[in-house]
Computed example of a mutant assay.
Amino acid sequence: MSRSVLVTGGNRGIGLAIARAFADAGDDVAITYRTGEPPAGFLAVKCDITDAEQVEQAYKEIEDRQGPVQVLVANAGVTRDQLLMRMSEDDFCSVLDTNLTGTFRVVKRANRGMLRARKGRVVLISSVVGLLGSAGQANYAASKAGLVGFARSLARELGSRNITVNVVAPGIVDTDMTRALDEAQRESIVKQVPLARGGQPEEIAAAVRFLASEEAAYITGAVIPVDGGLGMGH
């Protein structure tokens, strides 16, 4: 049976690959996007997850069109890279407000329907940076590390209601975000990857789909690295 799936930030990169993977499996997929034109084939809802009212309105539209969200993939995120001495308070707070507090907003709202149904799947998209650290990304790393504690707390809180909460931590993946790096930066990162290459968005999507499947019903509170071995041991 098809499920009601929501992927935040599903208009490009990893989010779009995840949305396509669920749609290809026959699920009803909604995506949120903040700017630009959304891709065809999904219920696309414009929503800035830093605004609680926009989150509420997005959920109402999704629920009206495809029913309560049964699978939530919290993928939306931003970067504002800067060395700490040059990082403004706005640079720090705005990244946490989107990546961590924004995730809190969308998960809390999805939780309402999942508790009623006594079933649900939540997958948070973190990053190898949240576990390994990265110079110039203290704000991004803090937000992505925070998702791990958030997910594991919810896994304990919601497990008795048959709601699983897991984290996928990608490494360097071929997206617009990593294409913005110059060639030397990309090569430096890839040299640290045991598999000696960057990942593809579809490889992240495959892990997410597995965690949302019946086969993963006994997995919760897990952090699944999909990083070519870059962050192993963390």
Rank of each mutant, 00 (worst) to 15 (best):
G9P: 11
I224G: 02
L154F: 05
I204H: 12
E53V: 15
S188Y: 05
K46C: 13
D64M: 07
G171M: 03
G199H: 07
I224D: 01
F22M: 01
A207Q: 03
N162E: 04
Q185L: 13
G233E: 03
E61D: 13
Q66G: 05
G149I: 02
P194A: 10
R86L: 11
V71K: 02
N11I: 00
G10I: 11
I31R: 01
D91E: 11
S134N: 15
I163M: 05
K191P: 02
I172R: 04
R20D: 12
R20N: 13
L84G: 10
L83H: 13
P38D: 05
Y33E: 03
K191V: 01
R80W: 14
E183S: 15
I62R: 01
S188G: 12
D97C: 06
G77I: 00
M232Y: 10
G133Q: 05
I163G: 05
L72C: 06
T175G: 07
G149W: 10
D28N: 12
G233F: 02
E203Y: 14
R116K: 15
I224A: 01
G221T: 02
L96S: 10
S127L: 03
G149V: 01
E157I: 05
K144D: 03
K60D: 15
L6Y: 08
V226S: 06
V73K: 01
A142L: 04
V106L: 02
C47Q: 07
A222G: 03
A169C: 10
S213G: 13
A142V: 08
R197L: 12
G171K: 02
D97T: 14
P38Y: 00
G233R: 03
M114I: 04
L124G: 00
R156S: 13
Q57C: 13
V107L: 05
L83K: 14
R156C: 11
M87N: 10
A205Q: 11
E202T: 12
S160F: 04
L124A: 04
A212W: 02
Y140S: 00
D90N: 15
A212H: 02
V148D: 08
M177R: 11
A17H: 08
L147R: 06
G113S: 08
A44T: 08
G149L: 06
G136A: 04
Q192T: 13
G26K: 05
T101V: 15
A222I: 02
L147E: 06
R20P: 07
L154Q: 08
G10D: 08
Q192N: 11
